[in-house]
């Protein structure tokens, strides 16, 4: 118990039980899977990329939950970088999407399936 007090006094919340962690992880996994399903089903390139953002977000949620569980800040730090990368990817993806849209006047991914085999 002294450890708990110590934690509280050094600015950390009380430890989180594994069960609570499981709650968050399940939500995170569900969000990830929703992203996957969206990526597989939606034909709109922008929505598809939005779905990868959702998967990133799911990872972020898991990281924050783990960070809380282990009581260190690494997970939160990781999330900062995840957001950074998400922003960078989004910038590139949107530029690409605009380029593609100008070319075909359509946002459909099916427009781009000429090469095969």
């Amino acid at each position: 118990m002294s450890e708990l007090v110590l934690l509280a006094q050094s600015g950390f919340p009380a430890p989180m039980g594994g069960l609570t962690l499981a709650h968050y992880l399940f939500v995170s996994a569900a969000m990830f899977v929703l992203g996957v399903i969206g990526f597989l089903t939606r034909r709109n390139l922008i929505i598809m990329f939005l779905c990868t953002e959702m998967m990133f977000q799911a990872a972020g949620l898991a990281l924050i939950a783990f960070s809380r569980f282990w009581l260190n800040q690494t997970g939160q730090t990781f999330v900062i970088f995840v957001i950074t990368i998400a922003a960078a990817e989004a910038a590139l993806a949107l530029a690409l999407v605009v380029l593609l849209f100008r070319k075909r006047e359509s946002l459909s991914a099916d427009e781009w399936s000429e090469m095969s085999g």
């Binding site: 990830f32 899977v33 996957v36 597989l40 089903t41 939606r42 034909r43 359509s106």
Partner: peptide
């Protein structure tokens, strides 16, 4: 292309197997 999902059952099955 926005109105129709592509192979919803396959995607959902895969996704939820993954879950």
């Amino acid at each position: 292309y926005d109105a129709e999902a592509r192979e919803p059952f396959f995607a959902a099955a895969t996704g939820f197997a993954l879950l």
